[in-house]
Amino acid sequence: MNFLKSSVNGKIWLAALGAAVAGPLLLTIADSTVMLAGGLFLYVFFLQYQAFQKQEMQKKQIAQEKMLREISFGLFNNVLEADISENRVLGENALKLSDLLGLNKSDDYEEIIEAVVAKLVKEDFREEYKKRFSREAILALYQAGQSSFEYEFIERSDGVSYAWVQTSVCIYRSFDTGTIRIISHVKNIQQKKEKEFAILQKAQRDPLTNLYNKVVTKEFIDEFLLSMEGRGMHAVYLIDIDNFKFINDHFGHAFGDAVLSRVAEKLNRSFRASDIVGRIGGDEFLVLAKNVEDRAIVLRKAEETCKSMHNLLKGISGSASVAISIGICIVPDDGTVFDEVYIKADAALYAAKKKGKNTFVLYENL
């Protein structure tokens, strides 16, 4: 009896022990299963969310491209869309541009760019235009993370007269094909450029005579002499109005200003448009005559310039007259930069003044 009771108690004890051990174990397995299932659900949800976000982004970008095309074609006549990867110009404008260029409805991007350069772009800008709009350059910009660029140049947009224009280019990857494409439009900026040039000219010019001021004269002469074109023979004329103080004192500063303006006009007409003519002091002018053939021509031009001033005030004053003295030096014999030639020409001018004024002296004859 005691044995039986003991046996039953042992079984109960063992059962209780088993439940105590197995219970938490079963709960742990259940929790792990729930956690694993939850993790898988979250992972799948994350992937679906990412796909949804990507799809939404693509929809937005496609809509944006469509809007860009609609706006561009609405605002600008000269719009170009091209697939750079496939070397094709796209859309109706491809045919219009091809017909304008005489290419018989070609959509070949490189062929169209070559024709644009040859027939529409002004010669000074052709090489740069070809570089900027080459397929290699555009693909390189895209690879570098650049999505747009602008270029200003001169072309005959109407096929007849030249004008300043600005091309704005957008570079993007097509979601449909995966290829690199561009959308560009051209707008006329002639008026803007004319205003910019007017402001620049005002900064460069002497307000009284409209000749280059001293700073710009020096800068232009140094730039020219350092260039390949500046390697020839050139003449520097330093010109001073004789007795200008007397003119100012006896006839007034307004009359003196009129004399300066007349001398400036005469110098502009006496020298070529390619020469550099500037006012570098009160009554002092400097001219760089480019690419002269020999010294005889240089001296003859100085003599003609002196004589041209004799009747300068005819119709303005019966008692006042104008004469000038000129100092001359030769590039490269007497110098190759502005500061060198100015010192030599100034020494020659001083000699002309001492000689009796109304004459000219060549530096090498000192």
Rank of each mutant, 00 (worst) to 15 (best):
Q50K: 05
K66H: 15
F41Y: 09
Q61M: 05
Q58I: 14
S72I: 04
R69N: 02
Q64K: 15
I71V: 09
Q64A: 11
Y43H: 13
L42T: 05
M57E: 05
Q64H: 14
Q64L: 11
L40V: 06
A37P: 00
F46A: 03
Q64S: 15
F52V: 12
F52W: 13
M57Q: 02
Y43S: 13
L40N: 04
Q64C: 12
R69Q: 00
I62H: 00
E56I: 15
F45S: 04
K59W: 11
K66A: 10
F41W: 07
R69K: 06
K54C: 03
L68T: 04
K66N: 11
G38M: 13
S72V: 07
I71M: 08
E65R: 14
E65K: 10
F46E: 04
K59E: 15
L42W: 08
Q64W: 14
E56R: 14
Y43C: 15
K59S: 11
E56Q: 15
Q61P: 02
M57H: 01
Q53L: 04
M57V: 01
E56C: 09
I71H: 05
Q53K: 07
G39S: 09
L40F: 03
F46I: 02
R69L: 04
A37S: 08
A63P: 00
A37Q: 09
A37G: 05
F41A: 09
E65C: 14
V44C: 14
L47T: 06
E70I: 10
K60C: 11
M57W: 00
S72K: 01
Q61R: 04
A51K: 01
Q55M: 15
Q61K: 07
S72D: 06
I62F: 03
K54H: 02
R69M: 00
E70Q: 11
K66Q: 10
L42Y: 07
A63R: 00
Q61N: 12
R69V: 02
R69W: 01
G39M: 07
A37V: 05
A37I: 08
R69D: 05
E56Y: 14
K54T: 04
A37E: 08
F45T: 03
F45N: 03
L68P: 01
K66W: 13
F45W: 05
E70H: 12
A37R: 08
F46W: 07
A51F: 06
Y43D: 12
I71A: 06
Q50R: 07
L40H: 07
M67A: 11
M67K: 15
L40E: 07
Q50D: 07
L40Y: 05
